[in-house]
């Protein structure tokens, strides 16, 4: 498939628009969900159900002055929020939302997603270091060690899926799960019996990789003020926020594609982009639910969970799947 300049522009604009819209309204959903879960009012003043809150917030952020603290490393300080947002937008290019809605279907789509996701760690590092703030540096050390240690079980789980489906093209992966829900990779009938555990593992890793509570050690506001974005105001902060929510959308999309059959209907009826979006937003809802229900872990608990529990389980699952695929 080849693209013209026009197609590429449309794809990029659509990706940015989708990311920005999601970021804005996921903040709204998050605050409403937080209010509901913790029995307090969320944003409910501006517009019906507070739906005009995100544009108001966006305008406020854009109208604010971008302040750069005196001792900061100016170049890194400015580059970091951009670096947080751009890889997220790049990742949208290869995600297939349905059979036809995909900007550029790559044969190595999974790898590309992870390649761009790994840039997020650099953004956090530069932000924390560039702002010359003790809290920022502490947070970036934490966030980077976290993202390094959770990338490993995540990638091993993805290798398991790649072995089962035999392709790295996200579109073909979904095609391999067509039909009813019993064909999804989540259900263990045709592959490894450990697939639901694998899904749980991937879910936990996505939570950790996107710096979400209970794993948001990078911005633990009760210990580190706001972590790596302590010094950021106005749209610098806004870009970090948008990047975070865009990463959540990408993570849940990846979960949907790898485990939950992408745009396939559970009962084989009317496959299409709506099923994809339903699954993605259900997963995002569970993210919000978890964030406002569980307390934050400690950094030791976080690293131990990855190195002592998740990595051994994912390796075992990899071996088991390889063995079962060889036998059957």
């Amino acid at each position: 498939m080849s693209l013209t300049i026009f197609n590429a522009l449309v794809a990029v604009v659509a990706a940015i628009a989708f990311a920005a819209l999601n970021a804005a309204y996921l903040v709204w959903a998050e605050r409403r969900g937080a209010g509901r879960i913790q029995r307090r009012p969320g944003p409910n003043v501006n517009g019906p159900l507070g739906l005009l809150q995100p544009p108001a917030d966006g305008l406020k952020l854009m109208a604010k002055q971008l302040t750069i603290p005196g001792g900061a490393d100016k170049a890194l300080f400015v580059v970091a929020p951009v670096l947080a947002m751009v890889p997220a937008i790049m990742s949208f290019v290869t995600i297939p939302f349905s059979d036809t809605i995909v900007a550029h279907s790559m044969n190595i789509g999974v790898l590309m997603l992870f390649a761009f996701a790994s840039l997020g760690g650099l953004a956090i590092l530069f932000a924390g270091w560039g702002s010359r703030n003790k809290y920022g540096v502490m947070a970036s050390v934490r966030a980077v060690s976290q993202s390094i240690s959770y990338e490993i079980p995540m990638l091993i789980t993805v290798i398991t899926i790649v072995m089962i489906t035999g392709t790295m093209n996200l579109k073909d992966m979904v095609a391999a799960q067509a039909g009813g829900f019993w064909n999804w990779n989540f259900f263990p009938s045709f592959s490894s019996p450990l697939m639901p555990i694998s899904f749980l593992l991937f879910f936990v890793c996505t939570l950790a990789e996107t710096n979400r509570a209970p794993f948001d050690l990078g911005e633990a506001e009760s210990e580190l003020v706001a972590g790596f974005h302590t010094e950021y105001g106005s749209m610098g902060f806004g870009l970090f926020f948008m990047g975070e929510y865009a990463n959540i959308v990408i993570g849940t999309s990846l979960m949907t594609i790898l485990f939950l059959g992408g745009w396939n209907c559970p009962f084989g009826l009317y496959p299409g982009v709506w099923w994809f979006l339903i699954k993605v937003y259900l997963l995002i809802f569970s993210f919000i639910w978890i964030r406002w229900t569980f307390p934050r872990t400690t950094i030791y608990g976080l690293l131990n969970l990855s190195w002592k529990i998740l990595i051994p389980i994912s390796l075992f699952n990899l071996l088991l799947t390889a063995g079962l695929l060889k036998v059957f």
Partner: peptide
């Protein structure tokens, strides 16, 4: 692979060591 290994792993580990 260049992105994944060199940018995503090598650079981050170097930066980590510096910190």
């Amino acid at each position: 692979m260049q992105m994944l290994i060199y940018v995503g792993a090598v650079c981050i580990v170097i930066a980590f060591a510096i910190m």
